[in-house]
Amino acid sequence: MAAQSPRPKSPPLTALRAFEAAGRLGGFTPAARELGVTPAAVTAHLKTLEGALGVQLFDRRHKGVALTELGARVLPDFTQAFRQLDAAVQHLRREAIPGLVRIATTADLAQLWLSPRLPGLRAQGLQVVPVPVPGPDEARNLADLALFPAPGPGHPAPLVAVAAPGFAPASRAALDPDRTLVLDGPLGDWALWAGAAGMPDFQPRGPVHGSAALALEEAANGAGVLVIARPLAEAALRQGRVTTLFGVEAASPLSLTLTPLRDPGDAAARVLAALSGR
């Protein structure tokens, strides 16, 4: 058999992933969130890649970065290649562990809504894949199912205001803007809840949290009143760690939506049916 020539040495895969993520997401910081590293690490990977190739892939600007003409031309090739690689890895996992079902979701939904439902589902081979950027497109090559907030039918996600039982104000007039907690994003929309409560001019002035789990823990410890999607607070409400205020629920345009990311197969279909019915 004739000897095969060795493959040419490629730049580090981590550097190529950093380039693809930063180009697709439009910045080093969102790329760092997706990859689970720091923005400084993404910057270092890209300097390594640009130095190895002797090219510039990003223009560094005062208010961010933008792909160079060369970077924009080659980015689609890398996006397609990494999608194919991710799909191949998922194929390997399915072949190695028949019946495994992976569900992609945010860390908050995994901890606060999905985790209480998992004991009965783990026997069906369910594995949770937390992703930093919500959305089926970001999860398509990582999992079989996706669970994210989205418009349309699904598990209703009305907004409620919650507080520790001993901290709950007696009336709307007693609600102190300085003793509030703000959950960043649509699952913590104070304006929507305040409008439903007949307080359209109320402006919370409390600290802003990016994590629903942390914000809910703070509320349970008496740090303030928190507006949050009810499904995220279900377990804490059931345990009596927090209570809802004034009997007000604000209808949300979002619901917790389960989406098959590929032909689900029998195992994924069973998980999908079990979660959709809860």
Rank of each mutant, 00 (worst) to 15 (best):
Q239S: 03
A146I: 13
L275I: 07
L67R: 07
R33N: 13
T29L: 09
Q124E: 14
P204Y: 00
Q84H: 15
S252D: 10
A21Q: 11
R262V: 10
P12G: 06
A251P: 07
A233W: 03
P134C: 10
T257Y: 03
R270V: 08
P200T: 12
E95I: 03
R93N: 05
A21I: 10
L16T: 11
A236K: 11
R117P: 05
P253A: 04
F202V: 11
V242P: 05
G64A: 08
L258C: 07
L232F: 05
V162A: 02
V101G: 00
G120R: 13
R24A: 12
V248W: 02
D59G: 07
T259C: 03
H91N: 13
P12C: 09
V248E: 04
L261V: 06
R117H: 05
A236D: 15
F58M: 13
A170P: 07
Q127I: 05
A273F: 00
S255Q: 12
A161K: 02
S10N: 07
D263H: 01
P76K: 07
I103D: 03
R17S: 01
R73Q: 15
L100T: 09
L109G: 01
L175T: 06
T243C: 12
A139R: 11
G188C: 00
P116L: 08
L109N: 12
V133H: 06
G23Q: 10
A236G: 14
D86S: 02
P151V: 10
L92C: 04
G277D: 13
L13V: 14
A197N: 00
G265S: 05
Q56F: 10
D184I: 13
A40Q: 14
G240T: 08
P12I: 10
A168P: 05
G265C: 06
R278P: 12
T48D: 14
A41T: 15
L245D: 01
A219C: 06
G195C: 00
V242T: 08
A194S: 02
P149W: 00
G27D: 09
A3S: 15
P260Q: 04
S211I: 09
P130Y: 04
E234F: 03
A274G: 06
I103A: 06
R61M: 14
Q111F: 02
T106E: 07
P11T: 12
L92S: 07
D86C: 01
E138P: 05
T259W: 02
A168S: 04
L13P: 06
V128Q: 03
A123S: 09
L53G: 01
A267D: 13
F246G: 03
G154Q: 14
P76R: 11
Q239E: 15
T243D: 09
P177T: 04
A87E: 13
A196T: 01
H91F: 04
L92I: 08
V89D: 01
T14E: 15
R83T: 11
D59Q: 14
A250T: 01
L226C: 00
P260R: 03
G277L: 13
V128M: 03
L67D: 13
G152E: 09
G166Y: 02
G198D: 09
M199I: 12
P39Q: 06
V133F: 01
V182G: 07
I103W: 00
A269C: 02
P98Q: 10
G99E: 12
H62I: 14
A66V: 15
S10C: 09
A107R: 15
H209V: 10
E217M: 13
L256T: 09
